[in-house]
Amino acid sequence: MVWDSKPSPRQGTDRGKRVPPGHYAPLARDERFQLLKKKSHRLALAIATSFLGWYFLYVGLSAFARGFMARPVAGNVNVAILLGVLQIVSTFLLAWAYAAFARQTLDPLAAELRAVAAGGAAPVPRTAGDLDTQRWPVHGQAPEQGPGAAAERRDSWPGAGVRPDLGGLG
C-alpha cells in the first residue's frame, strides 16, 4: 500500500556535503560522464520535440481545422474527441518510455559515476593527455600516473562488475 510504502534507501554518497564550488567539475571529463550527458540530452530532446510537436499540432487543429476535428469516427465520437483521448494516451506512453529508458540506460551510468566520486577511484580521462591528477581533489588521493594505469583503473574501481546496491535499480 501507498500508506506504508517507505522510500528506498538513499542513493549516492557525499549527501549534501559542503564542498568548494566546482568540486565535482573534474568528473565532467570522465568518458562515462560524456556518454551519460550525450544520452540524457538526446533522450530529453527526443521526448520534448515529440510531445510539444504533437500537442501543438492538436492545438493548431482545434483552432484552425475545425471541419477536420468535427468528422465523425464512430457513433457520436468525432476526430476531436479521439485525438484528445490520444493525447492522454500518448502522454502516458511517453512518460513510460522516458522512465524505462532512464532506468535502463541512464541510471547505471549515473550510479557508476557516483561510485567513482565516492570511492576516490580516478575518473577515466577522455584521452591519456587529459590525465591531470592535480585536478582531482576527492579524498586527496593522487591516482597513479600514466595512461596505462588509467586504462587499468577503469576496470578496477571498487564497484566494477558488481554494481553497488542502489535499491530497485533492477
Binding site: A25, L27, A28, L106, A110
Partner: peptide, 20 residues
C-alpha cells in the same frame, strides 16, 4: 564563474553526486 561551476552543476544534476 568559469566553466568549472557549470561542469560541477552538470555532474551533480545528471549523476546525483553531492545531492541533498
Amino acid at each position: 564563474a568559469g566553466d568549472s561551476r557549470y561542469d560541477d552543476l552538470k555532474v551533480r544534476s545528471l549523476t546525483g553526486v553531492g545531492s541533498h
